[in-house]
Computed example of a mutant assay.
Amino acid sequence: MQNKNKTVVKSMALLNLFLTEPKLTLSELISLSGMPKTSVHRMVSSLEEMGLLTRDRNGAYTLGLVFLEFGQLVSERLDIRQIAKPVMEELCQEVDEAVHLIMRDGNEAIYVEKIEGTQTVRLYTAIGRRSPLYAGACARSILSFLPQEEIETYIRQTEFVPIGSGTITDPAELLQTISSSLENGYTVSYSELENYTAAIGAPIFSHKGQVAAGISIAGFEARFTKERLPYLTEKVKGAALQISEKMGYKLPHTQ
């Protein structure tokens, strides 16, 4: 922290406000940031000059178009996303459910790709959305396959907050679920991030044998019946393995 430039850190804090708010006035930026008016005005002016912020005719600010350029570069350079997308599209056609690809970012999971099914009602998920690692099948498919010591540290340091009616907030229950995921190679969730929805997630491994991402199929709970679950489970596990192998991963017995 001592080596960080304070102005850069504060400017980033201002930009982070736009993650949840599409448009903010100068007064709102001052209020939400808790920073002095003169500091906010100076930083906002610089951010606008660099194209990181854009001001409309009413004086409200939005993120600048330069973020689209950076976002496109990031997307293009995420090799795993390029590798996974064709497999995800095929999986989506087979099961007709939404298919998600997520990656870990600290103690969170971030959605980096999504393929929609043909269902008329859409899930509230989108590329760029974040979720805690403990909530939802896709995120937990990453958490479950981290080194045991890392899992224990995460659970010890995390405050578990309910998001949906089925969110697991008890550490003991979470550990039990993780144990089952390790044994079965997948994890299932019901109403954890959004009520009346279900998901099945499986881990994607790198050529080093480390969990690199997670893939899931998700839809409304009524479609994830007991009879259909084995079929969906095998499909998502197969897709996860296919992507893993394309990344150079080899099953232990073939190494």
Rank of each mutant, 00 (worst) to 15 (best):
S46T: 13
L63V: 05
V99D: 04
N58H: 10
L65F: 13
V95P: 03
D105M: 08
E69C: 05
V44N: 01
D105N: 12
L91P: 02
V44A: 02
S46W: 07
E28F: 11
F67P: 02
L65I: 14
I80A: 09
I102A: 08
N107W: 12
I110S: 02
K37W: 01
I115L: 01
L101T: 01
P86I: 08
G59S: 13
P36I: 11
T62W: 06
T38P: 04
V66M: 12
R77H: 08
G34S: 04
G106P: 03
G71L: 09
G59K: 13
P22Y: 05
A98K: 00
V40P: 01
E49C: 11
Q72F: 10
D79W: 08
M43P: 03
E90M: 13
P36H: 11
M43W: 07
V40L: 07
L78R: 03
E108K: 04
D56Q: 05
K23E: 15
T62D: 11
I110K: 03
N107M: 14
I80K: 07
G64M: 05
L47H: 00
E21P: 00
E21C: 03
I30P: 06
R57P: 05
S27A: 15
L65V: 14
E89H: 05
F70A: 12
M103W: 05
L52A: 08
P36Q: 12
A84I: 02
D79M: 12
E108P: 01
K23N: 13
Y61Q: 08
G51T: 12
K114H: 10
T25L: 14
K37Y: 03
M103P: 04
I110R: 02
V99E: 04
C92I: 01
F18S: 07
V87Y: 02
K114R: 14
L24C: 05
R42Q: 07
L29F: 03
G51Y: 08
Y111R: 11
L91W: 02
F67C: 04
V66L: 13
V87H: 07
D56K: 08
M50H: 15
V74F: 06
Q72K: 14
P36T: 13
T20C: 10
K114F: 00
E89W: 07
R81E: 03
E90P: 06
C92M: 06
P36V: 09
V87T: 14
M50D: 15
V95T: 10
I110P: 00
L19D: 09
R42C: 03
D79V: 15
L26S: 09
V112F: 13
P22I: 08
G64P: 05
F70V: 12
L68F: 14
V87I: 15
E76C: 06
S27Y: 11
L68M: 14
E89S: 09
Q82V: 07
L52M: 12
G59V: 09
Y61S: 09
G34Y: 02
L53H: 02
T62H: 08
F70K: 08
E28V: 13
L24P: 03
R81D: 03
T62V: 14
L78C: 02
A109F: 06
H100V: 15
L47E: 01
Y61R: 14
V112D: 11
L101M: 10
I83K: 03
F70R: 09
V87C: 06
N107Q: 15
S46A: 15
H100R: 12
M50Q: 15
S31K: 14
E97W: 00
I115F: 01
K114W: 01
C92F: 01
